[in-house]
């Protein structure tokens, strides 16, 4: 059964739920009347109600900065050590990718490179760009910003790939004296980075992207009157 897609017409006067004094329950999709300055719970499912996620921007910045700091040891320290007949061969994340290239498995090397190098970088830079776009003018349309954010949310979990690979290898290959693979400190750091970037994305409230634009519009109107704040 293929269902028809309907896009309602954009109303002439754009009003958000916040401006209309309404609040949408993030869990069960019910619409309630918003009571200002009160802790409000959804009467239907008991979830906390808020028009915008509390402290969204500050929390996102905090998680983002923490993950950026941890990203340094991720790339400089070793993620796993391969002891093969007594010779140690520690490798970093990039080292692992290069090793896979040398082995001739280009497709897998590409997948690992995307998941553990490109994805975390893209995620951190993307979230930062979106946060900056709330303060400064960035040459992006609203649709582009929301699409970028949805993409960031979608790809985030895939960077766990390297953590899983390390844990599988460490479990499978531990024949003492012959071949032994152990995890390195970068694995811990990398796991934390992935969790932190996921938390950063989930604490960001997408509705702020549209609020900002309206605030700007208001500023334009206000600027015509002197002494407006």
């Amino acid at each position: 059964m293929v269902s028809k897609t309907i896009t309602p017409a954009l109303p002439d006067k754009i009003i958000t739920g916040k401006e209309a004094g309404l609040v949408l329950c993030a869990e069960c999709y019910k619409v309630h009347r918003y009571i200002p300055d009160a802790e409000q719970e959804c009467r239907c499912c008991g979830a906390e109600l808020y028009q915008r996620k509390p402290d969204s921007i500050n929390r996102t910045w905090a998680f983002l900065i923490a993950s950026m700091i941890l990203y340094i040891p991720v790339n400089t320290m070793m993620i796993m050590n391969v002891a093969y007949f007594g010779t140690d061969e520690p490798s970093t994340i990039m080292g692992g990718v290069i090793l896979l290239l040398q082995m001739g498995s280009h497709a897998v090397a590409f997948v690992v490179f995307v998941a553990s190098v490109l994805v975390p970088l893209f995620k951190m830079i993307g979230i930062m760009l979106i946060l900056f776009s709330l303060k400064y003018k960035v040459n992006m349309t609203d649709r582009q910003r929301i699409k970028m954010f949805r993409f960031i949310e979608f790809i985030g979990r895939w960077s766990m790939l390297d953590i899983f690979v390390v844990s599988i290898l460490a479990a499978l290959v531990h024949i003492t004296g012959v071949a032994e693979i152990t995890a390195g400190p970068a694995a811990t750091a990398f796991g934390t980075v992935v969790v932190l970037t996921m938390l950063a994305a989930s604490s960001f409230d997408t509705r702020l992207l549209w609020d900002y634009k309206r605030k700007n519009y208001k500023n334009i109107e206000l600027n015509q009157e002197p002494a407006a704040d």
Partner: peptide
Amino acid sequence: ECDLLIENQEICETCKVQCPRC
């Protein structure tokens, strides 16, 4: 995702409905 208020929208049950703004 964008908190747009849509009023008086007639929508059929078997359709997929998208937000016009985001």
